[in-house]
Nucleic acid binder design. Structure first.
Lengths: 224, 224
DNA sequence: TTTCGTATACCTAGTGGTGGGTATCTGCTG
DNA sequence: CAGCAGATACCCACCACTAGGTATACGAAA
């Protein structure tokens, strides 16, 4: 694996492979700079472009091709999930790796269902990223150790307790913005009763007993 | 500034300066790896050690010296603020730059008061970090553009609205644990009325109007 | 010492969230 | 088509939180 001789020596007889092109998406420029630099030393991969928002990434995809996209989950404008879904329709053959700081099993599951090929954490090392890149180009999936542990652990639970509907998420977001039920009703053009019902259902689903639990849930699930 | 000739050419007659040693602290290994790699190309700086927690960083400081510490604000075990304060007593001459993803004016102010020399955001570029490093070794302070804008904007506001008393923080923490006022009263052996008064004062100080705002404040100030 | 901040405590009204229901309409899926 | 999930809507009782007050005691700072 660590045989980079042909790379270090330009006169090597080995045939250099064509480098896999990567689109790197993260709103933290400093991480972008860092990872790009790290990968520039790799014989197998090359960061062709970078983007600091989902929108920017999509625009790049419309006029360029990439073998792999490595993207943050927390993004401005589009969420990681929205970006993944959009990317899948623009470049169906591109491999996708999510590089996130959060180890939330629900998010990981949703992303895997959406078709990503790898999920690694920002606390992982550079080596982990390179391993993941190798795995996905070989048509295999890659999960960072912590994430696979998490999924295994979760498998025990009877499961699927949680998922909020889109409307419920919408309500929850507004609740988190300090709107009262009445205000939410006005914003969404629905009855205050309906909002109350949604809130009750959200409380039941999340297992929270009051506003505080709701907000904590919203934070934990990156809804804020 | 970009004259790196002595660096690129080892036979240059210019006298190489001694590189400033950096301690880099961040729980995201991949950022650590990336920044270290980027700085390895700099003629002026060198990442001597890295740490992924405040504790680890402090231990390193006890047996080593560093010219500059660059640290995340969100850290496991110790918060950035605690690390800064502890670092100041261990290595009083070391420069400290905070590299955070959050642009919360209250946090920035508190850190500046605690004696940091620079504050930059993860969304800033590698170049910004290098600029900051140069500034602080020249005994000057450095704030990323967004942060200084923020502080200027804040200067208009009359007050020091923010700081909660220790009792208020205690109450807030319990509120955030989903305890009702009555339960908090029982836990702290005080009257429910007193709890209510504290809550009111906290609301006033934080500018929140309800529980939601309170919890968001608690999150933003790492009280949870 | 006087003032200030902090913590303590109480009152009243009013607003809003919680928890228990029930019920209709829509669209999807087996 | 029947069944189910989701979004909509309403009712009522209860209780928790919010927003005005006022007031006392203590220790630190000016």
């Amino acid at each position: 694996m660590s045989d980079k001789s042909w790379f270090k020596n330009p006169f090597s007889r080995a045939t250099p492979m064509i480098k896999r092109s990567i689109l790197l998406v993260d709103d933290h420029r400093i991480l972008l700079d860092g990872v790009k630099n790290l990968l520039s030393e790799s014989p197998d991969f090359e960061v062709k472009d970078t983007a600091t928002s989902g929108k920017e990434a999509l625009q790049l995809m419309k006029s360029n091709e990439y073998d792999i996209m490595v993207t943050d989950y927390e993004l401005p404008e589009l969420t990681g999930l929205e970006l993944i879904r959009a990317a899948k329709s623009v470049l169906p053959d591109m491999k996708m790796i999510v590089l996130s700081m959060h180890d939330d099993p629900a998010v990981v599951k949703e992303l895997l269902r959406a078709g990503i090929h790898g999920y690694i954490l920002k606390k992982d090392t550079h080596k982990t990223l390179v391993d993941a890149l190798h795995k996905v180009v070989a048509n295999r999936r890659f999960l960072s150790d912590e994430i696979s542990d998490l999924l295994i652990q979760m498998a025990d639970e009877p499961e699927e307790k949680g998922v909020l509907t889109t409307r419920e998420v919408e309500i929850l977001r507004l609740v988190a913005k300090e709107y009262s039920s009445r205000q939410i009703a006005e914003i969404l053009f629905i009855s205050e009763r309906t909002v109350e019902t949604h809130r009750k259902n959200i409380l039941k689903k999340t297992g929270a007993t009051n506003l505080v639990g709701l907000i904590k849930y919203a934070y934990a699930n990156n809804l804020i």
